[in-house]
Every structure is written in structure tokens, then in C-alpha cells.
Simulated assay, not measured.
Amino acid sequence: MRALRFHQFGEPASVLHTETVPDPIARSKGVVVKILAASVNASDVRNIQGTLPWTTTLPRTPGRDFAGIVVQGPTEYLSKEVWGTGDLGLIQDGSHTDYLVIPEAAVAEKPNTLSFEDAATVGVAYITAWLSLLDAGHLVSGDVLAVTGANGAVGTAAIQLAKWRGATVIGIIRRESTRQAVLRAGADYVLNMSQQDMHDAILAITGGKGSTMAFDTVGGELFEPCLNLLSRKGRLIAITMSGPRRVCFNMVNFFRRELHLIGVDSFYLNTTACSAILSQLQPCFEAGILRPLSIARCYPIEQALEAYHEVQQGGLDGKVVLTMHQSTRVTQSL
């Protein structure tokens, strides 16, 4: 079978190659999935570059998200259309290949309303948003959520999850061209931080109280401004860092307002844990309550280096998806 492989860390254009490797075999309590589509995430690029907080063992096949069909394993799983994500490509070979072995416990049926390509956009973004807002942040109906990077994959997923749970959502963007996409995702308000003062605008929206939660998907220079957006006892969820790893903020303001700072890391969640969350999301996608992310480009695996280049360059409004075998796409994304 074909698999993308890297034997050393570096830029994908230099170290990532398509190789022929042995077909996998379903062993005890495992199944083989024929991969039909798999997203290329920014974390896949960083994994190959060796710039994640830890380094994977080499050689390695990258890829975290996938959608496909079970072709080997116990009879009750055969021909099931599945989707998944997790620590693939990190501590075990990932999804940028023709076939993938996962545990039986990680089998999650994909929504029957989604194509394989659309289903492949969901994993990392929605799992990260779920862990951040629902598991860590305990978001409830009536919360006011401010989301930085609202036009990004995780930001878009966060908006939809928050609206599903009854929150008011304020999307924060840098480029005016992304406003309509954030509104389509469900945001109640959209603030362009290049044109407006975030703090003043959110105080105006909330009657001077501030947001009860801020979800910072950008990090770096936005860390302290996000703290300042919060109402008393507000929660800031941090998932990433851009630029220097150290940040500064007013500690007196922090404890006097009884603010909460919560860090979330989705990298340590394995395929089985992620499948449990995806199974809870499945009926929401089938009912149209949640939607997959938009797809900017689809590339066959033969053009994987072009796909990785697109993700590495950034600036796309949507996901980049690899296709391994022919699939019929049903467009239901944002």
C-alpha cells in the first residue's frame, strides 16, 4: 500500500515521501480501515518539522484525522463507514496512507449525511473545541463566549458547539474578508480587532460586564487582552502559543476579579477516547445542528506535497484534504 513517510525531521518538501509499505493486518481487538479521506492539519506539518512539544519516533506516517471503511476485523464491523482522530501520526503511524489499523474500541460510525471528505475535516478541530469548551470550560446555556481566531478550524467548531449549548458567541477576527464565514458558523457578533478595540466592543455588547468565557485559539500577544475581556470569575481557555513562550499579565487584576486560566492539550487523547466524543457528535451532524468545516482544496495522495505546502503557507479559508481512493462528496460544509 502507499503511505507518506518521513525518516528525519525537516521541511515536508524535503523529508516527506510516498513509499510502498506492507498492507496492515487486523490483529486481536483491531480493525483495518480503508482510508478514503484525511485532513492535513498544521500539527501534521509541525510533527514532520519536529517542532511539537515532543518528538515522535522515526520513521513515521503522519496524519491525525481520517474517514473510511472498515475492511478487516470482526464481522460486525466490516463495511462500516467510520471517522476518527487522536494521537495518530504521533505515537503510531497516522492516516496519510491507504489503510490504517485502529482498535475496535476506536470504531466510530461517521454521520450518514456527510461525505468522507467532509467527515475528514471534523476530528482535530471539533475534539479540541469539545475538550476546551465542554470538558474544561464547563460552558452552559447563557454563557457569553469570545473566540479569537474565530475564522479558523478550531474557532469555527467552537462557535457551533457553543451555539448548540445555548451560549452567546462573539467571534474575533483580523481580516474583514472572514466576517461572513464567522457569521455563517453561527456567531452572534463579529469584532474585527484590526478596526475595533476588543475590550470596549465586548463591554458594549455585554452591558459593561465582559464575557464569561474567552477561548484563545491564537495565543501570544492576545493572551493578556483575552484576560481583560472577561467578566468577574470569567474563564480563559488557552490551547496554543505563538511567539515567545512566556506571557505577562496583571496578577492583581487576575486575583481580584477571581479569573480562571485553563490550559487544554488534545495531543494526548488517543483514538479510542476521541471516538467516544465523535459518537456524541454524530447525531448532531446528522440532524444538521453541527456542520463540517469548509474544504479549501482536495488533493489526491499523489499530490500530497502540494497539500502540505498549502497548509504550511497558511491563509486558506478552509481545510486541505487528501483523498486516497475515489469517493462521492456531498457538500454540507460551512
Score class of each variant (00 low, 15 high):
Ser39Asn: 07
Ile102Ser: 04
Lys29Thr: 06
Lys34Ile: 00
Ala119Tyr: 11
Thr51Gln: 06
Leu78Asp: 05
Ser39Met: 04
Glu104Phe: 05
Thr57Gly: 09
Ser39Tyr: 09
Thr51His: 08
Pro59Cys: 03
Glu117Asn: 11
Glu81Met: 12
Thr57Gln: 14
Val33Phe: 10
Gly73Ile: 07
Thr56Tyr: 03
Gln72Asn: 12
Asp44Ile: 02
Leu88Asn: 09
Thr57Lys: 15
Trp83Tyr: 14
Pro53Ile: 03
Val40Cys: 01
Ala106His: 07
Thr55Leu: 14
Val45Phe: 08
Ser115Pro: 00
Asp65Phe: 12
Leu36Ile: 00
Pro74Val: 03
Phe116Gly: 10
Glu117Thr: 15
Phe66Thr: 02
Asp118Ile: 02
Thr113Leu: 09
Thr97His: 03
Val82Ser: 05
Lys34Asn: 09
Leu88Gly: 03
Val32Gly: 08
Val122Ala: 12
Gly50Glu: 01
Pro111Arg: 13
Arg60Leu: 03
Thr113Pro: 04
Phe116Gln: 07
Gly84Glu: 02
Lys29His: 14
Leu78Pro: 05
Asp98Trp: 02
Asp118Ser: 13
Ile102His: 08
Thr55Pro: 00
Asp44Arg: 08
Thr113Met: 05
Pro62Met: 01
Val32Trp: 08
Ala119Thr: 06
Trp83Cys: 11
Asp87Trp: 09
Val31Glu: 06
Leu36Phe: 14
Ala106Leu: 01
Glu104Arg: 05
Gly50Asp: 07
Thr121Pro: 05
Thr61Pro: 00
Val70Lys: 07
Ala120Met: 03
Gly63Ser: 04
Thr121Val: 04
Ala37Gly: 09
Ala120Asn: 08
Pro59Lys: 11
Gly94His: 01
Arg64Leu: 13
Val31Trp: 10
Ala120Thr: 02
Pro53Gly: 03
Ser79Cys: 07
Lys29Cys: 06
Ala108Gln: 13
Val40Arg: 06
Val122Lys: 12
Pro74Met: 03
Ile48His: 09
Gly63Arg: 01
Trp54Asn: 12
Trp83Ser: 07
Val45Pro: 00
Val70Pro: 00
Tyr99Glu: 07
Val70Glu: 06
Pro103Glu: 04
Gln92Cys: 09
Gln49Met: 14
His96Gln: 15
Pro59His: 03
Arg60Phe: 00
Ala106Arg: 10
Asp65His: 13
Pro74His: 11
Val33Pro: 01
Pro74Leu: 06
Thr56Arg: 13
Thr57Asn: 12
Pro62Phe: 01
Tyr99Asp: 01
Val31Leu: 06
Ala119Asp: 04
Val101His: 12
Val71Cys: 09
Gly89Met: 02
Leu100Asp: 00
Pro103Ile: 01
Ile35Trp: 08
Thr85Tyr: 12
Thr97Leu: 02
Thr113His: 12
Leu52Gly: 05
